[in-house]
Nucleic acid binder design. Structure first.
Lengths: 153, 153
DNA sequence: TGACAATAGGTGTTGCAACACTCATATTAC
DNA sequence: GTAATATGAGTGTTGCAACACCTATTGTCA
């Protein structure tokens, strides 16, 4: 675009790269919203649900705060208060490590584990219903291209 | 999963549908974060940038609040204060319609138009650099599958 | 025409997210 | 062994987002 165009409404058609970005954002928002409609009635945000799944995968030893943050999908600079809220809801419990007293291990409570196990089926059903009009080959292609799309970052 | 498993850490491997959801969320977060690093130094959130592009596309007449909200990528129940902040930053201006006095038309200021035009090149360069290791055919396939993935919702 | 519903916009409040900063503990260098 | 650095966790503050609710204007229909 030339300097003379800077104060006009003229702008070029979106490039293929931009189409990818917009389509990606729209699809993520659509699927995210639908999942929220399952999680919010249970008092969970998507981030909190991800923490439950992360901690379930970690087993009884739990994980320290930074390990939880690293495994989260979205960058989350305030894991402390996220875990505070989940501790207040009796979903997780924390205990300071004796090995390294800087570390605080967080693990699921029985209530948290039951909740995330209960949600497995409902969430899987939702994802299936949202995507069952695509073939397995298409889904595998989609995952492959999505993974490739972020491989540079 | 059987009832007996509800309080265990046993859970099945993620289905293909779940892999799509996770990969989609991760890729969106990665690309979103990179774009934020371009926009935040200019004082913009991604949503505000989208509003600028929406209003540029609308031309001099502008759009009313609900029309802006409908065109946004993510559901946004508080467009009023979003536009308040952009008006305070002198990016948009508002005027109540005389035809239907319920409507308030929002349009870009000269500053807002210049800003969004200036960002075009930088944003496009970013998107290209993030995705230039994928072929055009792959990008077209990605857009097609992403569009298909949200077609049911 | 006058009551009532529908639409558009705005507001009050609450809770969460992001930033910078501090404190405690552990590791490293000398 | 002590000082300096690095790492992990938590806190104070600010701003934005989401929810419910309210007001003004328009449209609908008896």
């Amino acid at each position: 675009m030339s300097t003379a165009d800077r104060r006009t409404n003229k702008h070029s058609a979106p490039s293929l790269h931009q189409q990818v970005f917009v389509s990606l954002a729209r699809t993520e928002a659509t699927l995210h919203d639908a999942l929220d409609r399952v999680l919010v009635p249970r008092g969970l945000s998507l981030t909190q649900y991800n923490v439950l799944r992360i901690l379930r995968g970690a087993g009884a030893e739990g994980l320290c705060r930074n390990e939880v943050g690293e495994r989260l999908i979205t960058r989350m600079p305030d894991v402390t208060r996220l875990l505070d809220r989940m501790e207040a809801a009796d979903l997780v419990t924390r205990s300071r490590s004796t090995d390294d007293r800087r570390l605080v291990n967080t693990m699921l409570t029985k209530k948290g584990l039951t909740l995330v196990n209960d949600l497995d089926h409902e969430v899987d059903q939702l994802h299936r219903s949202q995507l069952d009009h695509l073939s397995a080959a298409d889904l595998r292609t989609l995952v492959r291209l999505l993974d490739a799309a972020r491989s540079k970052s």
